Each structure stands twice: as structure tokens, then as C-alpha cells.
Simulated scan of single mutants.
Amino acid sequence: MKTLQAPTRTAAILAQLLERLDASRQAVDAHQYRTVAARLSAMLANTDIDWQPLLEQSPAATALYENLHYGDAGLCRSPLDAAMRAEMAACDAIAAARAKPAPDTAAPDAAPAA
């Protein structure tokens, strides 16, 4: 499908559409979703274009971009500091939970036999 719009504008529209599909509370047609994701992925594969402005605005485009370039750069656009803090907080919470004494699990005393 040919378009008269600039590649970055077309990619921005596709990214917005993909985000709408992601956020939809109603069932989304799988073929439509795959088509939009494939078209946006094909555009993001073009290394001659600076995708930085789009990637800063669109989580959906960022996820596709990372997946396309994972072999070269890993999760290069993920917020590493936030992920590290979350992992450390989870480790602290687990350690605190393990340090708490277990609740009394003994059965209540049975009534004396008559």
C-alpha cells in the first residue's frame, strides 16, 4: 500500500493505532493487529530514519523497535534503573517475608475427653 505521507508520520499513525488496539477493552481482530504490527515493524527496520521522537512518544513502537534490534542491543530502550530498583525492592520484600515468624498454625486445644 503506497502512502503520500512521510515515513515518520505514517509510522506515528500506525503506532497510535497499535496502542489503541492494545488498550481496547473489546476483542480485537488478530489479523488486523498482526497487519498493523508488521507494517510498523517494517518501517522501524529502516535505519536511515531517526526514530527517536516516535520512540519517546509511543510505548508500542518502542517495544517493536526493541524486538527488532534485540540481537544487537538487547533491551536498549528499557528503563534499566527502574527495573533494577523494582528487582531490589522485590528481593527486600521476599527477605522480610522470610524473616517474619510463621503464624501459629497449631490447632486449638481439644476439649478434654470425658
Results as ranks from 00 to 15, higher is better:
K2M: 15
K2A: 15
T3S: 15
L4H: 15
L4G: 15
A6W: 11
P7I: 01
P7M: 03
P7F: 02
R9P: 01
R9I: 14
R9W: 08
T10H: 12
A12D: 04
A12W: 02
Q16N: 13
Q16I: 04
Q16S: 11
L17C: 07
L17E: 12
L18K: 01
L18E: 00
L18P: 00
E19M: 04
E19Y: 01
E19P: 01
E19I: 01
E19A: 05
R20N: 11
L21T: 02
D22A: 08
D22H: 14
D22F: 05
S24E: 08
R25E: 13
R25C: 05
V28P: 00
V28D: 01
D29R: 04
A30E: 14
H31A: 08
H31S: 08
H31V: 10
Y33G: 02
Y33L: 11
R34M: 11
R34V: 08
R34K: 14
R34D: 13
R34A: 13
T35S: 10
V36R: 00
A38D: 12
R39G: 05
L40D: 00
S41P: 01
S41L: 08
A42E: 11
M43E: 09
T47A: 15
D48E: 14
I49W: 02
D50A: 11
W51Y: 10
W51C: 12
Q52R: 14
Q52L: 14
P53N: 14
P53M: 13
L54P: 01
L54A: 03
L55M: 06
L55E: 04
L55C: 08
E56N: 12
E56P: 02
E56F: 06
Q57D: 14
P59L: 06
A60C: 03
A61V: 05
T62G: 07
A63N: 05
Y65P: 00
Y65D: 02
Y65E: 00
E66F: 02
N67C: 10
H69T: 15
H69Y: 11
Y70K: 06
Y70F: 09
G71P: 03
G71T: 12
D72P: 03
A73E: 15
L75Y: 09
L75E: 09
C76T: 13
C76M: 12
R77D: 03
S78F: 08
S78T: 14
P79Q: 09
D81P: 03
A82M: 07
A83Y: 03
M84Y: 04
M84K: 07
A86N: 09
E87C: 05
M88I: 12
M88A: 11
A89G: 12
D92F: 09
A93H: 14
A93L: 13
A93C: 10
A93S: 15
A95D: 14
A95P: 06
A97M: 10
P101W: 00
A102P: 02
A102N: 09
D104H: 03
D104N: 11
A107V: 04
A107H: 06
A107W: 08
P108G: 03
P108V: 09
P108A: 07
A110M: 13
A110Y: 07
A110D: 13
A110P: 07
A111R: 10
A113H: 08
